[in-house]
Design a protein around this nucleic acid. Structure first.
Lengths: 285, 285
DNA sequence: CGAAGCTTGGAACAGTTATTCTATCCATGC
DNA sequence: GCATGGATAGAATAACTGTTCCAAGCTTCG
């Protein structure tokens, strides 16, 4: 690797960026050829501009996992006299952003139509997701949740089943449970091998199945077959009338709001994560 | 003039306002029967909230023509431990529409409102998701979003790439785009066939790639290879320093909040859905 | 392998911070 | 007019601030 060219202090001093946008551009441009620690700071600064604005040098250094002196070197290498000078940039950014924020808030309160085009769509999906989350918090059956965690904590292996729309949830659970050190297998039906994937599952394991209207037939069949074989079943679904409820040991209802034709997944994912972490806690503790 | 009733320290301590709006209301209400200097401070605080957020106690005291100690008495008379506590309110007002997530959680716990066990965890994940969504709405780069939609709308086939944590997003996009009647293929690396899956992709297509820290090496490599072949790349990632940004035609930043070790996916999914539906609209219209 | 160059960590520094405390001031009630 | 008690100003203080400086650590080049 070629040695990075020495930083020209004159060049740096000539041009201490005066606005956040300028600074940001400069940081992005130089990030590649910045020493390790300074690069770390650059990253933190751009990713957490609010912290940079308010924190003391000690706090920021701790959060960025750097020495306070490194922050000063960073500031100076971009042409500022010291850290305080650099911090001014971040503070001004917040000051200037404020009026914009006020207007938006007012617009939202009035119930105005909001933004147009893709941004408007985004507002819609974000709204739907937030609404789903709020409903989940208030409507969750705490008892069922506790029983579900108990079942999963007792299981030897946790099998995950969710197809089509619910596949995002089951695949994320496979990732999360793995990270938590829990044995889990994802019945993903690759190569139409679902029967074989489910073949070795027994009563000592547990099935966590996710399905929403229109319930994928394969999901229901596989879940039902496993339940018949004595496998405890925890179901995440969208209605008390779901075909999963008759044979589920525990079922949890999530009512996802929709924006247009598309339903959110935010609540289902939050619930899934809760199950994963609570199970890990129950087992580990 | 009637003598002002003595301030009841208990009453003040019972209720230190936690948001700027609450504080403002309280100040306005008490302003009439406040001692001269404290009234002076009240007025300055409401009129110059930015100064209150950024300044040191000495600067503010000078600007408000008051003694520093008066600022502390003012803070305490509203139930705060000292000036620094009061200043937090003004800082949070600027920092984010939403009070700091961690402190909110702490407040919930202290107030006894927070639930215990799995339900408490659920609250945490729901909070993190909601916060991510709020930040997405406010922080989204509308221009980039529009350019991204334009690229995707022009594409012959939309290729989806996202592994590990991001796989939930890419797989959901595969489902959604299919429902919308758009040709999309998911590069899922089943059987380690990623090279073959990506082999037929050309400049007439487009790649929609999703990756978060720690960026899966295979994702970056494949995306970079396709970009080199002239495939337009739209990236959803979590930082301006993501390894995707150098070769992405457009990149969209989502800053997901975390609850414990696990990050939410709510904002990424909402953004993904937005891209899908906006692309369908752009093409169908 | 040795030398030279930045880069890095950590201690030392002077200056400033928020806070506490006390003497003084002023307005009120008797 | 005097006593009372909160409000105020200002000095004292201890903690912490941002900054400087230097020795040790790497990396790269000769």
């Amino acid at each position: 690797m070629p040695r990075p060219p020495p930083i020209d202090p004159t060049a740096a001093a000539l041009s201490a960026p005066e606005s956040f946008e300028q600074l940001r551009a400069r940081v992005l441009e130089r990030h590649g050829h910045l020493p390790r620690r300074l690069g770390q700071i650059a990253r933190f600064a751009i990713d957490h501009p609010d912290e940079m604005a308010f924190g003391t040098i000690a706090e920021i250094a701790r959060q960025a996992e750097v020495q306070p002196s490194a922050l000063i070197r960073f500031s100076q290498s971009f042409g500022y006299a010291g850290f305080s000078d650099l911090q001014q940039i971040f503070r001004h950014r917040l000051r200037d952003r404020w009026p914009d924020y006020k207007e938006r808030l007012a617009a939202l309160r009035q119930g105005g139509v909001g933004r147009e085009g893709p941004a408007g769509l985004l507002d819609g999906f974000a709204d739907a997701s937030a609404q789903s989350l709020a409903r989940l918090r208030e409507g969750i059956d705490t008892d069922a949740l506790i029983r579900a965690v108990a079942i999963l904590a007792k299981a030897d292996t946790i099998c995950l089943l969710g197809q089509r729309r619910a596949f995002a949830v089951s695949s994320y659970l496979a990732y999360a449970l793995g990270q938590l050190g829990l044995r889990a297998i994802l019945l993903d039906n690759v190569g139409s091998l679902m029967p074989e994937q489910a073949g070795a599952v027994g009563p000592q394991d547990a099935l966590l199945v996710i399905s929403f209207t229109p319930y994928t037939p394969g999901t229901i069949e596989t879940a039902a077959a496993l339940a018949r074989r004595g496998v405890p079943v925890v179901a995440i679904t969208d209605s008390a009338f779901s075909p999963l409820t008759p044979f589920a040991s525990v079922w949890l209802e999530v009512a996802e709001a929709d924006c247009g034709a598309f339903r959110s997944l935010a609540a289902s994912l939050a619930l899934a994560m809760t199950l994963a972490v609570a199970t890990a806690k129950a087992r580990g503790g």
